[in-house]
């Protein structure tokens, strides 16, 4: 998993410590701690995982093993406007693949990547439960339904690119 090098400030380290402590540093709460930390930092770079491991008394390799197991956790910062394409079955049979291809083409990034200007990141998710609107695209919290490849350019332009 590729990562980004960061230098943590003291207050950030203390924040992470407080998350770990809030869960009593119990090993069974690792996933909850990771959730909490990712919601604060937006992603889980290696340095953050080290702080967590150290505080909770876990091997870093174990924390990394858990982070890389779950697709919700990421070591790369998401874009300012994270774009998620639903590739659940209902969206797939209604053409989500073509929509995804168009986003890749327009943004010139692959799934899991963030555009060079940090504006957009692209990811896939499985079924958001809006199958009536298939295919569905999410930009941040906003949902776009019945998206066709032709709509992609317009959606991106809404965010000023």
């Amino acid at each position: 998993m590729s990562s980004v090098k960061v230098e943590l400030r003291k207050d950030q380290i203390e924040k992470i410590h407080s998350f770990c402590d809030a869960f009593n540093n119990a090993h069974g709460e690792l996933i909850n701690v990771l959730h909490k930390t990712q919601s604060e930092f937006g992603y889980l770079p290696a340095e953050v995982q080290e702080v967590i491991a150290d505080r909770m008394g876990l091997p870093v390799a174990k924390v990394f093993g858990v982070v890389t197991f779950y697709s919700f956790f990421t070591m790369i910062p998401k874009g300012e406007f994270p774009i998620s394409i639903c590739t659940g079955t209902a969206c797939y049979v209604r053409g989500a693949e073509n929509v995804l291809a168009e986003f890749k083409k327009q943004l010139n990034i692959e799934v899991g990547e963030t555009s060079a200007d940090g504006k957009f990141s692209l990811s896939c998710l499985r079924c958001v439960g809006a199958c009536g609107l298939a295919p569905v695209v999410l930009v941040g919290d906003k949902t776009y339904g019945r998206v066709a490849p032709d709509d992609v350019k317009e959606i991106i332009s809404e965010y000023g690119s």
Partner: peptide
């Protein structure tokens, strides 16, 4: 509440339990 983190296999009960315990599912 315990939160999953995006792993389909955690629907399997033993995997779910390992995930609840903070491990790889």
């Amino acid at each position: 509440l315990k939160y999953g983190a995006g792993a389909f296999v955690c629907g399997e009960e033993t995997a779910l339990i390992h995930s609840m315990e903070g491990d790889r599912g």
